[in-house]
Each structure stands twice: as C-alpha cells, then as structure tokens.
Design a protein around this nucleic acid. Structure first.
Length: 989
RNA sequence: GGCCCAGUGGCGGAAUUGGCAGACGCGACGGACUUAAAAUCCGUUCCAUGGCGACAUGGGUGUGGGUUCGAGUCCCACCUGGGCCACCA
C-alpha cells in the first residue's frame, strides 16, 4: 500500500489525545518519576488572532516540539505547555465594532488556534493550557500586582522586601524620615537603633497618618504618580514608552501620540536596573539580545555638578555629566524647556523669547522633533551661572535637545568635546574651549574634511585646534589626556581621562559641589491602560484620596459585564480621560468596607501583565490556593546542577522571536526578580536559556500602482524582462519620480515587481499551514520548516520546495513497506561480523544526528537521515538493526510516520518514551581512512592509511606516495604537518 | 549618526569552528518506464580551458590587504543587505 499520510496522521493524533501520551505529571502525582531529570521547554505563547496561522507562525513551535520529543527519548521529564496571551486590543476593537463581548471572540479564536496547532502533531500537555483572560488566571496576576504593591525596594539589600518590614524599622527607629520625605537608615552592617536623636531627622510616631501614608506610598514597587505620559487620543489610552514608535506614533494602529500629565500606576522597575544588567551574565541568551537589553537599560556613570546662578537668589542648577573631566571646557549651560527653574531665572529682556520658545517646544510633536533633529534650536535665558572650577560666568540657554526626562534636565555644555554642544555652539556663536588633547589620527582625518587645513602638519593642526576649534568640522569626543584644565587647587592637565574624571569628582565632593552618579535610560514602567479588555486592578480609592488594596482573600476582581467597551477616543489631546470601566454599574464600581465607600480603580493592566508570569502558572495551572505550588515550582525551575557550569536555573529552553528582546523579556525578568526577593520562586532569573528563531519570509508582488497582488497566482516567465513604470518617492531627493523596473513575473498577464519580506495577510503572500497539511501531510510541513535552514536565521518560504522532504518520507516508507502488498520489508538478519558498511553508516548517522539535535541544527540532522535513507534504496530489505534506530531518529522530526512504522515493526506502545538510539564509537570511525595530501597548502593527492596510524607512519606514507615524490622532486622538504584524521601538508620548496 | 548581525553555485543551504569548499534538498539538463501525463527510478549539474570519455590543468566563498604550513572561518579597511537604538549629556 502507498503511504497514506492523511489517515496515518489522523490516527496517531487521535491516539495521542486518547491515551494522553504527553500528559506531564508533577511531583506528587502517581505517574511521576522522581529519578528523571527535568527539562522545561517553552514557546512564547501567541495572541489568539482571528485570522489564524500562516506557515511562519509554527516555526518555533515545531522546533520546541522536536526538542521536547527528543528530550523525552533522552530520559527527561519534559514540561512542554502552550497557552494564549488573550487580553489585548484586537478583541476589544472587534467588540466595539460588532458588539460581541471580547470573551466570546477570544474563546472562539483560541478554539481555532488550538485546532490548527493540534494538526501539526505538537506534543503539548494540553491539560495545562491556559489563557491570560481566564478568571482563575488573572486572579493570580492581580495577586502578583499586590505583591508589588505591598513591597518596597531596600537599597541596602538591593532587593525587594515586604513594606511591613519598613514600617517596623521606622517604628523601632532603625530608620528615620529625612525632612525632604526620603527614608534614611543606617547601612546594613550597623543595623540597630541609632543612639540619641539623629540631627534633623523625623521620627515615625511624630508624623501624622497622612504623611506616613504618603511616605510609604512613595516607596512601594507599585505606585500612583502624576507623570507625563504618552497619550494616544485616537486609541483613547496611554502607552508605555516601549509601545511608541521612533516617529512618535502608536505601535498598534500607527496613531499620533502626545505627551500629557496623568495620574497613573507605575511599577518601580528602575530599582532593578542594576540587577537586570548584572544577571544577564548568568543566562544563556544570544549576545545581541543581551546587548539590546543593556542598551535599553542604558547605564551610564558620571557625576552631578551643581552650578550656582549668578543672581540674588543664587539658585542651584544640578547637571549630570559622564565627562566631569571636561568641566573646564564648559562654556555655557542648557536647560530643557520644561525645566522648573526656567521661569525663575529668565531675565525680563529674554522673557518673551523664552516663553514663545517654550510654547513652541511643547506644541512640537515628536515627529517634528525627529524631522529636524539635525537643526539645533534654542534661546538664551539672559541668566548666567558660575562654573565652579574656574568661577567663569557662563550663559544659560534653553533648548529642546536637552530632555527633561533624563538626568536632571540640565547640562553643562562642553562644545569642544560633545557633538551636540558643538553644533549648538557653532549655530549660536558660543565659545568653544578644548580641554582634551585630540589624537593624531583624529586631527589628520578631520583636516582632510575641512577647508584650509589639508596642508597643515600635525603640530600645526594641534595648535590650530586649540586656538580655533570652530574651524574643525566636528568635536573631539574621545578619551585621551586633559589639557588647559587647572585652577588654584586642582590640576587636571596631563592626566588621562579616567584619572581626570576621578580627581575632579573627588574635588567636587570635597567642596560639596557635586558627586559621583549613575544614570539609566530605563524609566519606571507605566502600568495603567484606559481599556476594558485587561486585568482590573485590585485597588480601591477612598473618598479622602487614600488607597486601599483589595484583600487577597477577595480576589479575583472580575471584569464587570458591559455592553459598551468603547474607549473615549478623541481628536482633542486634552479631552478628559474616561475609561470604559467608569461606565460599569455603580454596584461594581463601589465597595463599602468598614463603613467607608470606596471606588474601584477604573484603569486596567497592560497586555504585558499576563505574559509576565504565565510560564510559572503552566507548572501548576489548576492550583486554587497558590499561584504555583512550591514543590512543583522548585522541581521545574531549578535545573540539576552540573559541575562547573554557572546556573541560574529557570526554563531550560525558551524559544520566540527577537521582537520581544526588550519588552516582554525585560518586564518578565523584573516580576520574576520581585517574586524571587519575596521568596515566592526559587531562581533569580526565569529564562535560563533563550533562543530566537528567525522569520519565515516570502516573496510578495506589487503591480504598477504599488498594490499587492495574490502571490500564489503570480507566474514566472524566465527572460521576459517586461518593463513596468511606477511613480515613487526618491529616498534621497524626497521627490516623486517615475521609476522603471524590469521583471519576469506576471499576475493575470500584467507584469508585477517581486519584493521580499515577512509573510503576512497584508502582503497577500501568507501560506496556510492547513493547506500544506492537506497536500503534503504535517510531517512534511514539519520537516520542510526545519529543513529550510538554521533555526535562528530568516529564510524564504518556497512552496515548490516542500516536495523535497515529501519525497524523502515517501522513499523512506517504500524502503520499509512494500507498495503493492503492504508487507514489511524489514529482515531479522543478525548483524554481520565484521560490521558491514551499512552498519557503520547507521552508527555514524546516530552519532551525527545526536550531536545535531543537541545543537538544534535540525536542517543538517534531516540531511543526515536522507543520506542514510538513500543508502537503503537499493536494498531488497532493511535489516532490523538499521530500521529500528532509523525510525527512532526520525521520531522527533516526523512523529506520525515514525509511530506508524514503529507499530509495524511489531511494537505495541508509542515510541515517544522509547530510549534514543545509541552508537558504538568504534563503528563511527572507519578502519582505514583516506587523507588528502597538500603540498604548500594545495591538495595534490590522497593516501589511504589505517585510522589509528601515528603521525610518523602517516608522514612516511605520504612522502613515499608516487605522486608526492614526483611533485617534491628537486625540492627540500622543510616541514610535514600531520593533522590526525584530517590531512597531511608538506612544506617544500 | 551609533551599535549589532550577515554576505558561499541558478536557489535554500552544508563545512566537526583554522584543515578535502559546495553535504542534503530544490530547480535545470539528459535518459528509463508510460499511448500520454503525473508519480517513480538512473545519470549530469561551481566556473574556465582541453578531451568522445572515467579525467587533466587552472581559478573560485562580496572587494582589497594581512596573519598562518594552511583562511569561507581569525585581524584591518571598504562595499552591499538586514536588525536594533537614535539629541540619553
């Protein structure tokens, strides 16, 4: 009989479902085997979209499935779950447009996707499946939020602690309140009551309750703050910085985003900045992803410096700089337009100009700022400040190239050594004073780009630079040696940059003019959304403005039933914010406790909340008493330690796209660390190993209007070279221009242009996996997706290529099963002695495939199986000693056919728990090997030597070879290099 | 503009990480089977030159240089493509 993939695949998918083949027991369950090591392999769970999957989506799922199946055969307890990140905008927008409750849409989409995933034969434990929208799930998302709310970050321990412990410290006078509201307490080693009254500090019991409350609220990891937020009027919601694109638009929907102050929930992720950077060293992640996280957190080290305004009030302006060594070169200052001191210090003469510039800057969208980022703008305030190192009086400007949100919102400008300050200084004719010696290379390079400098020698250039830096095209921003930097007390001149930084910082600290400081680009995480379809906050607002957390026993706070989900979208960026939940029933909105009537928090959490911890819930998804049980969490998250390998535990393999490099992965690490500090989980990091799969790309075709056409109806006519003319914006000039293309591709007889990019519905080039399964079988689809190329690279889909792996499977079937009779073509002949070539090839293949599975090089593993299979084609029957390992090697990759063949080989259980085949190392190496012989690095001939021949014997064989003798005749052999098992190289001349 | 990644036949890719470049597949070409097509099977397929021919000689991993007995792999500069960040002081 022929290979009937449709029947066979359906048969085994049914078998796996009925027998719960992939159910994974937890510690304590009957079927649990405590002797096996664990392996937790996880996909980034998808949003259940209504349009269904295209073949690009399951790439990672197929890969993790292969790993899961392989690891089971290698004797691991494997946890391999799948779920759905189901809160979010599309379901809500669909609800707004069609009046269908998002839960209905979501559940329907989940069902569709589960069906599509099951057709791929993925070995998930479906009993563990969950959606972030399940009430049983988001109950615990709310619980984790309360953990954050009830905690503070203790800088002394560099960890989160329950806020009750802070209250106790304050009550016991182990900590005090600084008059500015900050909590101060002795360093960790000196804990204990301070003797006597610390001068100027406030005692806890002396403070009124409201002040106590404010102080605690200001310390919590989850806190309310009035902050300038990214407000998207069209979506009627705020967005996190990470959700706003470069050009100031919403990542979803591409709507304009403006800044406006709003009271919002924030999570204190900045407290973890240092640990989020440091702990990256402990995880096995791709370096580029680690780098992106480090850049996102954006740590920089430098110093604060206080400048005094030259005015009767003598206000202090604090700046942040990474180059305190250039302080002598600070010739002016710049404040952000929104800086609070601007109003106070501006002189009457400049007031009008300053006010109009501030108004202009406020009105400018980020798009405008982007567009002319090269053009520096600014206005002088008329005020001056004193440079503390040389008492120079320097002007204070405002300019929008300084941002209020970073550092102190004020800078000292050192135009000689900062590109932006240099441009600004040139534009407004401000003095430029070099205080760092430029390098020779830099000077000569600059001279070539500048007019009138080409002819100068190095010394002349140096003199020129020091006397007239404005004549150079750029600022020197490197780190070398300080020059022109001295005052009565401190000489930096001659010091290397590093030392100069340290010296001046010490001097500033001694004079109380500044101090060393670290800055991060990372901001606290804006956690409120003005949406319906998200987790409600477990928070109550009292009439007096105080906040009360919902008691843990009263969770979950369920979303109220509603008909109108519409956010209050508006064209007016200043319109009053009205969240959908503000229109919930009065009985939902109001709660009376202890005689006080509270109003519920009417914002919801962002979509990231649910995906921050789903990997933990998979471990114990049905637990009603805890978010995850301690035993199960400890078993699945703590890796068995291997000697010498650093380990942070966590998930053994986490696979997903690189688009989550800084959003999901940073947020999830943050939550996990909080839970770790609070002793709720066992490991400091959630994802021990991360793997980023590439994208499946596809050709897309556009007609002369630039409109996409159905890619699967495009035909290729080689050599046609049809012309197609199109109006296009020229990238360089920015003008519309006619552009002519030549193409061999046609859509309904009209020429079309081939483009290349991601697969997707909008590009009309999506390929449906269901169709591929119908046509070729899902084993073929699985093999093809893996055979395409390395998993971490993007590569193009070509439906016509899938026949390659499909033929392989058919050929393999025919090698095992007679097409006519259906008889098994496997012989039970005992292995030959000595082992024949086929036995050797089998062992070589087992060895190679094992290594390739471990390396996740599935494309090469498949190639090796094809080679072995090709060697079987000419045989009338396959020996059992070859057939069984072959089927087992195939099992993770093409599980349906493997199960069927395994059954036909006479086994009555699923091969998913069969041990992985082993190989005899002696059979992997041939007795005799052929070695290439190079002369002067070029291969000239080959010799055959015993595999275990020593270097001397190989050398002699090579030198006595006729061809070699001929070629080295008359030359002196200088050296013979023998690389064991590889080659021989003769150096002769 | 900064940082990161990649560049190998007509195409996707392989090369045990410094050791025989082009495994395996697609496509193409030639042949077998067939009334025919599909399917299947066999052979050829990096380029150039020579030969009917198994073959011989030379060149070859984006470009130019370098290190090395030996470079697709390491170093320097450049070109091209992709990604991330982008006035972060």
């Amino acid at each position: 009989m022929k290979y009937d993939f449709a029947a066979i695949e359906a048969k085994w998918q049914k078998h796996w479902a009925e027998h719960k083949t992939f159910r994974t027991p937890n510690p304590g369950d009957d079927a649990f085997d405590p002797d096996k090591p664990k392996f937790y392999v996880l996909d980034m769970f998808p949003y259940p979209s209504g349009v269904g999957l295209h073949v690009g989506h399951p790439l990672g799922y197929i890969a993790t499935d292969i790993v899961a199946r392989y690891k089971r055969m290698r004797g691991f307890n494997v946890l391999h779950p799948m779920g759905f990140d189901a809160f979010g905008l599309p379901a809500e927008q669909f609800a707004v447009e069609h009046g269908v409750h998002p839960r209905v849409t979501t559940e329907k989409n989940v069902a569709t996707m589960v069906g599509q995933l099951k057709r791929l034969g993925l070995s998930y434990d479906w009993d563990r499946s969950l959606s972030t929208t399940d009430v049983d799930y988001y109950k615990w998302t709310q619980w984790i939020f309360l953990q954050l709310y009830h905690s503070w970050f203790d800088p002394a321990e560099n960890a989160a602690r329950p806020i009750d412990e802070l209250v106790n410290m304050l009550k016991n006078e182990q900590a005090y309140v600084h008059p500015d509201g900050d909590v101060v307490y002795p360093p960790a080693e000196g804990l204990g009551p301070i003797e006597g009254d610390p001068i100027g500090m406030l005692k806890w019991h002396e403070l009124p309750p409201e002040e106590q409350r404010d102080i605690l609220d200001s310390k919590r990891l989850a806190y309310l703050a009035e902050v300038p937020v990214n407000w998207c009027p069209a979506l009627g919601t705020v967005l996190a910085n990470e959700e706003v694109t470069n050009d100031g638009r919403s990542e979803r929907g591409n709507h304009p985003v403006v800044k406006r102050p709003l009271k919002q929930w924030m999570l204190r992720i900045t407290a973890y900045a240092e640990r989020l950077i440091d702990d990256l060293e402990q995880v096995a992640w791709p370096e580029p992803i680690k780098l992106m996280q480090r850049n996102w957190i954006g740590k920089s080290e430098g110093a604060y410096v206080d400048f005094t305004v030259d005015s009767p009030d003598a206000q202090l302006i604090r700046v942040y700089t990474t180059r305190p060594d250039t302080l002598f070169g600070a010739t002016y200052m710049v404040l952000a337009p929104e800086h609070p001191l601007v109003d106070e210090i501006t002189t009457d003469a400049q007031r009008a100009a300053v006010n109009s510039y501030r108004a202009e800057a406020a009105a400018r969208s980020d798009v405008d700022r982007m567009a002319d980022a090269k053009e520096k703008t600014g206005v002088a305030t008329g005020a001056h400040a004193i440079n503390p190192v040389n008492n120079e009086r320097i002007p204070i400007w405002i300019a929008d190239y300084v941002m209020m949100g970073y550092g102190t919102g004020a800078i000292m400008a050192v135009p000689a050594h900062d590109d932006r300050d240099f441009e600004f200084a040139k534009q407004f004719d401000l003095p430029i004073r070099p205080v760092v010696a430029p390098t020779h290379d830099w000077l000569t390079e600059q001279a070539q780009a500048a007019e009138g400098l080409q002819s100068l020698g190095t010394d002349a250039l140096r003199t020129q630079y020091e006397s007239n830096p404005a004549s150079f095209p750029a600022a020197f921003t490197g780190a070398t040696t300080s020059i022109n930097s001295e005052n009565d007390e401190r000489i930096l001149t001659g010091l290397p940059t590093d030392e100069a930084k340290a010296h001046i910082t010490v001097w500033l600290e001694g004079k109380d003019l500044g101090k060393a400081a670290v800055q991060y680009k990372l901001r606290d995480w804006l956690f409120s959304r003005q949406r319906y379809w998200g987790e409600p906050f477990p928070i109550l607002h009292a009439p007096d403005g105080s906040i009360r957390a919902v008691d843990v026993n009263d969770l979950p706070v369920e979303l109220p039933p509603m008909d109108d989900f519409k956010p209050h979208a508006s064209d007016d960026p200043n319109a009053e914010v009205q969240t959908p939940l503000s229109r919930a029933s009065e009985s939902w909105k109001h709660v009376t406790l202890d005689g006080v009537t509270y109003t519920r928090e009417l914002n919801t959490m962002p979509q990231w909340a649910g995906s921050c911890w789903y990997y933990l819930r998979f471990i114990d998804p049905k637990n009603n008493d805890r978010f995850v049980s301690d035993d199960a969490e400890h078993y699945w998250m703590v890796s068995p330690k291997k000697d010498g390998t650093p380990h942070t535990g966590g998930i053994d393999l986490y696979v997903g796209g690189a688009e989550h490099a800084v959003l999901h992965l940073l947020y999830a690490r943050f939550w996990h660390k909080v839970l770790f500090d609070l002793k709720q989980v066992s490991t400091p990091e959630p994802f021990g190993r991360l793997f980023n799969q590439g994208y499946i790309q596809a050709y897309a075709f556009t007609d002369e209007r630039g409109v996409y056409v159905e890619a699967d109806q495009v035909e290729e006519r080689p050599g046609a070279q049809a012309k197609i003319t199109r109006m296009e914006v020229n990238r360089k000039t920015g003008h519309n221009a006619e552009k002519v293309y030549k193409t061999d591709y046609f859509y309904k007889d009209n020429p079309v242009i081939r483009e290349y990019g991601k697969m997707g519905k909008s590009l009309k080039n999506a390929v449906n996996p269901d169709e591929m399964c119908d046509q070729f079988g899902c084993d073929s689809l699985r093999l093809y997706e893996m055979y395409l190329g390395p998993l971490d690279q993007s590569k193009p889909w070509r439906t016509e290529d899938i026949v390659g792996v499909h033929r392989f499977l058919q050929r393999l079937w025919r090698n095992f099963v007679d097409d006519e009779t259906g008889d098994l073509l496997v012989s039970n002949d005992p292995p030959t002695d000595p082992p024949d070539d086929l036995t050797r090839l089998t062992h070589k293949t087992i060895a190679a495939v094992t290594g390739l599975m471990d390396a996740m090089s599935f494309n090469v593993a498949i190639a090796k199986l094809i080679e072995l299979n090709n060697a079987l084609v000419a045989l009338p029957t396959v020996p059992r000693g070859v057939a069984e390992p072959m089927v087992l090697l195939l099992a993770p990759l093409a599980p349906h056919m493997a199960e069927e063949l395994w059954q036909r080989l006479g086994h009555d259980t699923s091969l998913s728990a069969e041990p992985w085949p082993t190989f005899d190392p002696a059979l992997v190496v041939d007795d005799e090997i052929e070695l290439p012989v190079q002369i002067m690095g070029k291969v000239r001939t080959r010799i055959t030597v015993p595999a275990d021949a020593d270097d001397k014997a190989v050398e002699e064989t090579a030198l006595s070879d006729d061809k070699v003798k001929e070629l080295i005749d008359g030359k002196t052999v200088r050296k013979v290099i023998v690389v064991k098992g590889r080659l021989v190289n003769i150096v002769a001349n």
